[in-house]
Simulated scan of single mutants.
Amino acid sequence: MTAFLQQLPALIGVVIGALGSYLAVVRGDRARFRREQEARWEERRLAVYSEYARALKKTVNLTYRVAAHLGNDPHPHPISPAEAGPQLAAATDGRDPAGEALIMLGSREVVEQAREWVTAVMAMERFMRSGTVDPDAWQDLLARQRACRERYYTAVRQDLALPPGHPALWPTRPASDG
């Protein structure tokens, strides 16, 4: 019995060490799981944000081309409203599911900026569908759409803790040599 009592402190030390080691491993695994889960959600949100932007840009590019056909935009590849119709319908069909995923996974700020951007794009669509020939009004719509796009990307970068990016505001008309 005395031998057992002499070894009891060592046995207690082994049990405490094993318990401490177990707790450290469990805490480490939980922290790693949380980090991995956060990284997966960030990757998924980035994919949703990117898909929404791509879907919206399809519509934007088509409106540029139709506006060029009408004489409002300098886009080098004009397309008639009739030719653009099926492509615009497909772009809208692709935009809706991307928007639903954005609403589900996006932050409030990103979703709000996406709503403003799509509202600007829809104004461009209405202008184009009306057949209006007014290059100055078209340029105002373009400026609004570009500002909304920039705010969307800024909100995305803030949500994902990314560094500031390029505003992507470059001239769309050729520079004159004079």
Rank of each mutant, 00 (worst) to 15 (best):
residue 80 S to T: 05
residue 139 Q to M: 12
residue 20 G to Q: 03
residue 162 L to W: 03
residue 65 R to S: 09
residue 114 A to Y: 05
residue 92 T to M: 04
residue 96 D to V: 10
residue 55 A to V: 05
residue 117 W to L: 11
residue 74 P to C: 12
residue 1 M to R: 14
residue 122 M to T: 14
residue 11 L to I: 14
residue 91 A to I: 15
residue 154 T to A: 13
residue 70 L to P: 01
residue 89 A to I: 09
residue 55 A to T: 02
residue 110 V to T: 14
residue 38 E to M: 05
residue 14 V to W: 04
residue 61 N to F: 13
residue 90 A to I: 09
residue 173 R to V: 07
residue 48 V to A: 15
residue 59 T to I: 10
residue 89 A to N: 14
residue 39 A to S: 15
residue 138 W to P: 08
residue 140 D to N: 14
residue 37 Q to K: 15
residue 78 P to S: 02
residue 151 R to C: 07
residue 108 R to A: 15
residue 170 W to S: 08
residue 142 L to F: 12
residue 107 S to R: 06
residue 42 E to C: 08
residue 138 W to E: 12
residue 36 E to G: 05
residue 138 W to I: 02
residue 178 G to A: 10
residue 176 S to D: 08
residue 23 L to S: 08
residue 102 L to E: 10
residue 49 Y to D: 07
residue 78 P to R: 03
residue 65 R to L: 04
residue 34 R to W: 07
residue 160 L to Q: 12
residue 115 R to D: 07
residue 64 Y to D: 09
residue 57 K to F: 10
residue 137 A to W: 03
residue 96 D to H: 09
residue 157 R to D: 03
residue 32 R to S: 04
residue 120 A to M: 04
residue 138 W to Y: 15
residue 63 T to L: 05
residue 122 M to P: 00
residue 135 P to M: 07
residue 25 V to N: 14
residue 54 R to G: 08
residue 143 A to K: 15
residue 122 M to V: 10
residue 67 A to Q: 01
residue 27 R to N: 09
residue 13 G to L: 08
residue 38 E to C: 02
residue 45 R to S: 10
residue 5 L to T: 00
residue 57 K to P: 00
residue 135 P to S: 07
residue 147 A to H: 02
residue 38 E to W: 01
residue 132 T to E: 11
residue 26 V to S: 03
residue 143 A to H: 12
residue 37 Q to C: 01
residue 175 A to F: 08
residue 49 Y to T: 10
residue 174 P to E: 15
residue 52 Y to N: 01
residue 15 V to W: 06
residue 42 E to W: 15
residue 162 L to D: 03
residue 144 R to F: 07
residue 165 G to C: 11
residue 45 R to F: 11
residue 12 I to K: 00
residue 27 R to Y: 08
residue 74 P to G: 05
residue 11 L to T: 02
residue 154 T to R: 13
residue 73 D to S: 14
residue 18 A to S: 11
residue 6 Q to S: 10
residue 178 G to C: 04
residue 92 T to S: 13
residue 54 R to Q: 07
residue 41 W to G: 00
residue 45 R to E: 02
residue 88 L to K: 06
residue 133 V to R: 12
residue 49 Y to P: 04
residue 111 V to W: 09
residue 93 D to N: 08
residue 148 C to W: 00
residue 121 V to Q: 02
residue 134 D to C: 02
residue 131 G to Q: 08
residue 161 A to N: 08
residue 121 V to A: 13
residue 155 A to R: 01
residue 161 A to H: 05
residue 177 D to Q: 13
residue 14 V to E: 02
residue 158 Q to H: 13
residue 75 H to V: 01
residue 158 Q to M: 01
residue 174 P to V: 15
residue 146 R to Y: 03
residue 3 A to V: 09
residue 104 M to P: 00
residue 134 D to T: 04
residue 116 E to I: 03
residue 167 P to D: 07
residue 30 R to F: 06
residue 156 V to M: 13
residue 126 R to Y: 10
residue 29 D to V: 09
residue 92 T to V: 12
residue 169 L to W: 11
residue 10 A to T: 09
residue 138 W to N: 02
residue 50 S to C: 04
residue 57 K to V: 15
residue 86 P to Q: 10
residue 71 G to D: 00
residue 5 L to Y: 06
residue 151 R to L: 04
residue 99 G to M: 13
residue 90 A to Y: 05
residue 3 A to T: 05
residue 134 D to V: 04
residue 11 L to K: 00
residue 30 R to P: 02
residue 23 L to T: 05
residue 178 G to R: 11
residue 8 L to Y: 06
residue 92 T to Q: 11
residue 129 R to P: 10
residue 169 L to I: 05
residue 26 V to F: 09
residue 152 Y to Q: 06
